[in-house]
Amino acid sequence: MEKTMDLTLKVWRQKSANSTGTFETYGVKDVSEGSSFLEMLDTLSEDLVEKGKEPVAFDHDCREGICGSCSMTINGIPHGPEKATTACQLHMRHFHDGQTITIEPWRAKPFPVIKDLVVDRSPFDRIIQSGGFITSRAGSAVDANAIPISKATADYAMDAAACIGCGACVAACPNASAMLFTGAKVSHMNSLPQGKAEKDRRTLAMVATMDGEGFGGCTNVGECEAACPKSISLDMIAHLNRDYATAQIKNFFKPVA
């Protein structure tokens, strides 16, 4: 039989974007160590519903670490203590009987809380909308093998493209910077031959949107990489800085967009 545990949870409760939130303390019993963290929260929800209280609202969907919906800070660390693991893939065997766990939403000004653990991450979408694409109308593509891409380049692009857009990097950063997120997309697209035509334009536009949304600057703390469930490397930020500097210089002499 699997081991079970009893836990004390301190959970951020906030009715709506405009109300003031507070920590509420709840107990959950008989949590099996094979459960995921979110299944443990499901148990809490069912307990609350049983008592006629509203369950804790949190974003979640695929529960296999790829959609990027889940977004909660567990004992002070976005997605919790396990390295390269989303909250939905975090299993209760990493906790122990009698433990107190603090659960709160992403804390960052550009990601306002909408309810309980749910935040508004639409600034990420707007960063992508401003330049995180390679223009190729459906029907206009050349044969996929017409442009060879070295394995090293393809692998690098894939490392960058693995980002799930969860926002843990922003939540972990003392400046609430979105440089890792933006850097990953810029590195992915700027490194591919297909993405070169729009490289400078893309880089300037995405950084401008990022700044406009209120994200802070990068001061090389490195918390983002440590919190990232997909282990996106700080190198992506260096890549972004490099491409941004080049684009700015080019833009100074002749506007790129």
Binding site: F133, I134, S136, A138, G139, S140, A141, V142, D143, A144, I147, A154, D155, A157, M158, A161, H188, M189, L192, Q194, G195
Partner: peptide
């Protein structure tokens, strides 16, 4: 073809 042109890192 479309996906490669779109930047899918196959």
């Amino acid at each position: 073809d479309q996906c490669a042109a779109n930047g899918v890192p196959f």
